[in-house]
Design a protein around this nucleic acid. Structure first.
Lengths: 219, 219
DNA sequence: TAGATTGTTAATCGATTAACAATC
DNA sequence: TAGATTGTTAATCGATTAACAATC
């Protein structure tokens, strides 16, 4: 039972956990064994209050008068995030983006185990990406039946995602890392979706870039 | 003057603007010319109230009793985001991720104009990515002096980002699309940073995936 | 005009920060 | 013990939702 205190932990807290995990891993590897919420807050540019509040959603991991044990806390957060039990995940799409994701991202350090890569492009079928032969979409159903992945990483265009989503869900997929512009969460219930829309992020940067120039020129 | 009403628009609102823009573009292309906040809310899975509240940070773009003109509103939001004036941007890193970003992302539809790609790996120098010859880091300073980019897309590991950041800022870069784990915003002032940490997103998905299974098995 | 829907103010909700007693 | 720092409650702040008068 990973969640031992409050029943519902807010999305904002959950979104901060990976960053805590990252900083604590780094600290641990630099040989830091003990840290206070105040020190960590300084490093991460947060308030000590927020850190203590966040952690206490899951339990009391510190010691009064002392602080937190860095590696123990890192492990606790890793366990809350479910990073130890590697969940099988398939990737759909082996184009430019798909290749980069499969090569660049460490699924295994994020709680998943990449077990297959699929594409529709004959050109790509059979190629090797990180030790995985790219398989044809035709094999998807049988593969899902056999290996029971519950998660998928979608590196395909919106139309393909829209077409494929109902099948994936029928075949047991329940959680998605979604790079497509198809809004899965709006169309299906009881699915977990994380969208990565780099174009949207760039547009936000466009706004803040302009706002920054405005600000600087008014000073 | 893009911001004509309130002085400070919250980050939450700004983060929603690209999604509005995307949906309105799609609607416009599907031939929809008029929409009410209620209808748009339904499609986007938001509340009508939030949409009206968000838009009114920037001005009154609708018409009482009628609703909003889809393409006009799309253009207004595009203009707020600064998508028309293409800001020169350079990309640092032409590895797997860099290649995918440069190929996959349309900078020009997000307010930027990619003017150069750089890497340190001799192996990659001179290669062509989307019509850009990959240049060596050595050329960075002169290139910045000549073309005056203010923005950079960092597709390099943390150590490289940490080493390079002070130089980039010295050479005039003020805004970053940051794929590295180096926390630029913590170390420099008056810079605009958007971080893309796909590993963090995956870890969040790991949590929600487990939470979902728990939920489903308790029903 | 009557109906619809905005722009905007007020009420609610949730998240962050501050404060402090508990305790190592 | 005295000092430090947590866990936790209370206060503040901001964001979302509801309500409604203005108006097309």
């Amino acid at each position: 039972m990973p969640q031992n205190k409050k029943n519902a932990v807010s999305q904002s807290v959950i979104n901060r956990l990976p960053r805590y995990h990252r900083y604590l891993s780094d600290l641990s590897q630099s040989g830091v064994s003990k840290i206070s919420s105040k020190e960590l807050a300084e490093i991460m540019n947060l308030t000590a209050s927020q850190i203590r509040q966040d952690l206490n959603c899951f339990g009391g991991f510190g010691q009064q008068g002392y602080g937190y044990n860095v590696s123990a806390l890192r492990d606790e957060i890793g366990s809350i995030l479910g990073l130890e039990d590697l969940k099988p995940i398939i990737q759909i799409g082996a184009g430019n983006l798909g290749k980069a994701i499969a090569t660049h991202i460490s699924f295994s350090s994020s709680g998943f185990n990449l077990i297959g890569i699929f594409d529709a492009d004959e050109e790509l079928i059979g190629r090797d990406i990180k030790g995985h032969k790219v398989r044809h979409f035709q094999e998807l159903k049988d593969f899902c039946m056999e290996h029971n992945p519950r998660s998928a990483c979608l590196c395909i265009p919106r139309e393909a995602a829209q077409k494929l989503a109902p099948y994936l869900i029928e075949w047991g997929i329940r959680s998605f890392l979604n790079f497509s512009h198809y809004d899965i969460a709006n169309h299906f219930e009881n699915v977990a979706v994380e969208n990565v829309h780099i174009g949207d992020t760039l547009k936000t940067l466009s706004y803040t870039t302009n706002a920054l120039s405005d600000k600087m020129s008014h000073e």
